[in-house]
């Protein structure tokens, strides 16, 4: 998922079992706390842009997720087919960047220059290294 810098987001434990929420950013401040109670909700935020921030549960090592932290509100997460929609973008010239954890872990994503004028469509292809 994506969040904005300093935007508070909620982390909820939907399971009737113990989890820990361990964020391992490289730029922002690392945190780790326990959620032993079902329906427990904690609020957190990050104060610097960073893509991606990895979240993991050390109680269950197979549980992990990635969060993008942006300094603007124009971002989206694709669906299963790779489609996405960013709403409310003012008309003008922009650079759109696509990110995938397998291809752009340590560098910038694939980017494309576009001009927005009302509803605008932009296609991207992310290629795996051969």
């Amino acid at each position: 998922m994506g969040v904005m810098v300093n935007q508070k987001f909620k982390i909820k434990n939907s399971d009737a079992t113990l989890h820990n929420v361990h964020a391992t950013p490289k730029i922002n401040t690392e945190f780790n706390f326990a959620q032993p109670v079902k329906e427990q909700v904690n609020e957190k935020s990050f104060d610097k842009p960073e893509v991606p921030v990895r979240f993991m549960c050390n109680v269950h090592a197979w549980m992990f997720a990635y969060v993008g932290v942006f300094d603007h509100p124009y971002f989206a997460v694709t669906d299963k087919e790779g489609n996405f929609k960013i709403s409310g973008v003012p008309n003008g010239k922009y650079t759109v960047e696509a990110y995938h954890v397998k291809t752009h872990r340590d560098g910038p994503g694939v980017s494309k220059e576009i001009t927005v004028n009302g509803d605008t469509k932009a296609d991207f292809t992310i290629e795996l290294k051969k």
């Binding site: 820990n20 050390n58 090592a61």
Partner: peptide, 9 residues
């Protein structure tokens, strides 16, 4: 098991 941080405190 990558469990070093499983107990946060």
């Amino acid at each position: 098991h990558d469990a070093g941080m499983a107990v946060p405190d």
